[in-house]
Design a protein around this nucleic acid. Sequence first.
DNA 1: AACACGGGGGT
DNA 2: ACCCCAGTGTT
Length: 323
Amino acid sequence: MLQQTTVEAVIPYYRRWVKSYPDLAALDRAPLSRVLKDWQGLGYYERARNLKAAARILVAGNGGRVPDGFEELVRLPGIGPYTAAAILSLALNRPYPVLEANVRRVMARLLRLRGPLDGRADRKIASALSSLLPRRNAGQFNQALMELGALVCRPASPRCVSCPVASYCSARRRGEQDSIPPRKTKPALRVTAAVAVIRRNGKVLIQKRPDKGLLAGLWEFPGGKVEPGETLESALRREIREELGVEVRDPVFLARVKHAYTKYRVDLHAFLCRAAGALRPSPRRLWVKPAALRSYAFPAGSAKIVEKLIGSDGRSRPRAHGR
DNA sequence: AACACGGGGGT
DNA sequence: ACCCCAGTGTT
């Protein structure tokens, strides 16, 4: 869960997770839909699938035990060099350094590595850590370095005055702590989308995304990108015609949700409407009562629409994380 | 080595 | 609006 995700964001998910899945066998038994629902809102959903896949492998072939060797660990889906080193050092106190964002930043400053945090920097950092890592207390050392990065040697405005190793810091000595490591640049594509909350017989239509790619296997409302020259409504009619082969009737604006992804940001417009034409349910297309929508995993943007919809029905108030 | 892959929070 | 986060897998 902590891969690319802040501790604060993880904690509530982690608490629920260990309750739902107290061991690998429990995770192995659980349906993927339930696992994804428990992951809803955390992002990087492949992690949930990988965790479940790893549980399957270990229950089937390793007696439901987590291996204690680096090579066996990194062979498991979702476990890379960081997580393998974290398991070995934090759980078993074995002498493996953890190369993650906090450690990289702290070490880049200590060593005054002025270039980007690339493979070359990683090799220098690993080399330095191999002499710094205490052989008998690797877990505490690793956690201390990560905490130092998170609380003191922060990305912006590092608290050098409170830093226990400021006197060893080459970047600090030169006053370069604010420019090391260099900031990453950002592409920012912008997408406007229109989606339809199609109502029929007291239910609404939802679709399951493809099993691969962005937001794989999550549920959403049908619709799509507004092309240049289109209005929201004309895009909505075109998308629904293309995706479902039916005509939109009486669209009424429901909600606007802005949502940011790593590579682009989407401006999502949802419309309540009806549809003219046959719309059969299928494994990837479901009619669901609004009150039951919360039992499906949606991307965060769509989940906001779900809450608007349920709120407008006056059934119940939104919750942070529904079941 | 570059890119895909979320979402929330800080500044 | 931009940056970043206890990375991993694929290309």
